[in-house]
Design a protein around this nucleic acid. Structure first.
Length: 473
RNA sequence: GACCCCUUCGUCUAUCGGUCAGGACACCAGGUUUUCAUCCUGGAAAGAGGAGUUCGAUUCUCCUAGGGGUCGCCA
C-alpha cells in the first residue's frame, strides 16, 4: 500500500484567503504526484464546523467555490466534521477509561488566576489543572466536568517533519489540554485526530501555525495506539509588515482575486514560488510542470511576503495567452459593468481586450477603459492642445478617412502615414490631439488602433461632434 | 514571559565548504516605437552581528540580536 491520503481542513468561520489556498494547493500537488504512483491516493476535504457560533454556510460555500475556481479538485464529497461528533465523544470516553485522560472541574476563573500568577513569577508551567487528576471525588462525577488529556510530566516527544525536520519538545511543555468540553462537545484537538485517523489520512500538510499542535495530537495517537501520520508544516505567508496575512493587507480573500480579474494560473504560479523554486531559471511554471517537479521536502522553513507586483506580472503574462481567452469571457459574464457593454457590442469588447491586454494586469482594469469606448454621449473636452491649425488639418484628414473601404488596422495605419507624408507633418503634432479628441486621454494605444476599436461610424461621430463644438467657439 | 521556528539584493529565491554570490519581480538609465505601454540592452541592489571548526565559510557548530508562530472549555 503506497496510497497517500491528504486532506485540506478549513473551518467555515471566514472567507478562504490566499494562505489557505496555498495549503490546499500544496496538498493538491502532493496528491497528484502520488496518484501517478498509486491511483488510490486521494485529497479529502473536511469542513471543520464545530464552532457553531462562528461557522456560516455562506463561508462554506465561498470556500468550495474558491477551490473549484482555482482548479483544486478533491476526492469524495466533503466531510462535515460536526456530523461525527458522537464518534469524537466516544473516543474521549475511551481515553478516559484507559487512564489517558481525566475529569476536570476547574473553572475558567480559577485557571485564569493561576495563569496570571505563573506569569508574574515568570514561571513556565503549562499544567494549570493539577488537583483534579488525583481527586477521586472529581473522577467519579457523572456530569459537569470536562475531559483533559493526561500527559506524563517527564520525557520528551519528537517528530520528523517533512519540511521542519526533527523537532523535539519536552513533555512538560505540553499542557493537559481539553478533549471534551463541559457541555459535552469535543474540542478541535480531539476532533482533528479522530477524523484524520478515521479518514485514513497519512500525510498531514498544513501551515506551521500548527507546528506546536503536533505534539499534543501525537499524544492522542499514541494513547490510542493508532498509526502515526507523517507531517509537513509549511511556513506562513506574511503581509508586507511582516505579520500573518490578514484582511488589512488588502485583497487576501480568494474571491476578491477572482472579482478583480486574476487568473488561477497566475495565482498558482505566484504561490508556488514562495518557499520553493523550480530548478530551471524560468519562473513561469504551470500546474502540470509543478506536479512533475515539486518537492515538498525542498520547501524552505522561512515565511515569505506575498508580492502583489509579481502576481501582476504573472497575471499579465497569462492573460495575454490566446488559450486563456475563455477566462476573459468568463470574467465578463460575471462582471456587471463589462457584461452590460458586452451585450451591447460583443465585437467591440473583443477588439478592446486584444488591444489593451498588454497594458493591463487584471481584467477589471478594462472597466474604465470600456467606458470611454462605449460612451454614446462622448464629448471631447476642449483644451489648448486643440488649436485652429489642428482643426483645419482634421477636416482634411476626415476626407482621407472617408476613402478607406475596409476599416482595418493596416488600412488605417497606411491612411494616417500617407496623410502625414502629404501634409509634411510629424506624427505627434497630429496624433496626440487626435487621441484627445477621440478619448479625452493623452496616452493610450496607437491612433490606428483607437480608430479601429471605435469603428468607422463612431470615429466619424466623435470627430464631427468635436468639429461642431469647436466651431461654435 | 515560556516554548518552537526562521534570518542571502526592497520582495520571492539559487547556492548541497572554494561562485566575479546567480535568477525573477519591482526600481533606475539607454535604445526601438505613433504618445503611454510592450519589447531589447544595461545598471544599482544581499549573506543580521560575533566567536569557533577548516587551508578556505553564505554554507557546519555555538552565542547574541532581530523577526515570526504558539501558549483558549477557537479552529
Amino acid at each position: 500500500m503506497n496510497d497517500v491520503v491528504v486532506r485540506f481542513a478549513p473551518s467555515p468561520t471566514g472567507f478562504l484567503h490566499i494562505g489557505g489556498i496555498r495549503t490546499a494547493l500544496i496538498n493538491y500537488i502532493v496528491v497528484q504526484q502520488s496518484k501517478k504512483k498509486d491511483p488510490k491516493s486521494k485529497l479529502l476535504l473536511r469542513i471543520e464546523d464545530t464552532d457553531i457560533t462562528r461557522s456560516k454556510d455562506e463561508y462554506k460555500k465561498s470556500i468550495l467555490d474558491g477551490l473549484e475556481w482555482m482548479g483544486i479538485e478533491w476526492d469524495e464529497k466533503p466531510h462535515i466534521q460536526s456530523e461525527s461528533i458522537d464518534r469524537h465523544k466516544e473516543i474521549a470516553f475511551k481515553l478516559l477509561e484507559k487512564g489517558h485522560a481525566y475529569k476536570c472541574v476547574c473553572t475558567k476563573e480559577e485557571l485564569e488566576t493561576r495563569r496570571l500568577e505563573n506569569q508574574k513569577l515568570r514561571k513556565n508551567i503549562k499544567r494549570l489543572c493539577t488537583k483534579c487528576k488525583n481527586d477521586s471525588a472529581t473522577q467519579q462525577l457523572e456530569k459537569d466536568f470536562c475531559i483533559r488529556i493526561n500527559i506524563p510530566n517527564d520525557g520528551k516527544i519528537s517528530v520528523l517533519d517533512k519540511i521542519q525536520g526533527l523537532v523535539v519538545v519536552e513533555n512538560k511543555e505540553i499542557d493537559n489540554f481539553i478533549l471534551l468540553r463541559k457541555d459535552g462537545t469535543p474540542t478541535y484537538m480531539l476532533s482533528v485526530v479522530v477524523d484524520d485517523h478515521d479518514m485514513g489520512v497519512n500525510i498531514i500538510i498544513r501551515g506551521d501555525d500548527h507546528l506546536n499542535n503536533i505534539f499534543r495530537q501525537l499524544h492522542i495517537y499514541k494513547s490510542l495506539k493508532w498509526d502515526l501520520p507523517t507531517y509537513a508544516h509549511h511556513p506562513l505567508i506574511h503581509g508586507d509588515d511582516g505579520l500573518k496575512l490578514s484582511k488589512r493587507h488588502g485583497a487576501v480573500d480568494i474571491n476578491e482575486f477572482k472579482k478583480k480579474g486574476y487568473l488561477p494560473q497566475a495565482i498558482i504560479n505566484n504561490l508556488i514560488l514562495l518557499s520553493w523554486s523550480p530548478k530551471k531559471n524560468d519562473e513561469n511554471i504551470e500546474i502540470g510542470e509543478i506536479i512533475n517537479t515539486f518537492d515538498l521536502e525542498k520547501m524552505s522553513k522561512s515565511s515569505s511576503i506575498f508580492d502583489y507586483n509579481k502576481l501582476n506580472h504573472f497575471n499579465n503574462f497569462y492573460l495575454q495567452k490566446e488559450e486563456n481567452y475563455k477566462y476573459f469571457e468568463e470574467f465578463v459574464n460575471e462582471n456587471s459593468i463589462l457584461k452590460n457593454f458586452f451585450d451591447i457590442d460583443k465585437i467591440l469588447m473583443k477588439k478592446l481586450f486584444n488591444t489593451y491586454k498588454k497594458n493591463i494586469n487584471f481584467y477589471s482594469e478594462l472597466e474604465n477603459i470600456s467606458k470611454i469606448y462605449y460612451d454614446e454621449e462622448f464629448k471631447t473636452i476642449l483644451n489648448n492642445e486643440l488649436d485652429d491649425n489642428f482643426n483645419i488639418i482634421l477636416n482634411d484628414f476626415m476626407k482621407h478617412l472617408d476613402f478607406i473601404d475596409v476599416w482595418s488596422k493596416d488600412n488605417l495605419k497606411n491612411c494616417i502615414n500617407k496623410f502625414l507624408e502629404l501634409k509634411k507633418i510629424k506624427f505627434p503634432i497630429f496624433g496626440k490631439p487626435v487621441r484627445i479628441v477621440l478619448t479625452n486621454l493623452k496616452e493610450g494605444p496607437p491612433i490606428n488602433d483607437i480608430l479601429f476599436i471605435l469603428g468607422r461610424k463612431n470615429t466619424f461621430l466623435r470627430l464631427n461632434n468635436y468639429i461642431n463644438s469647436a466651431n461654435k467657439l
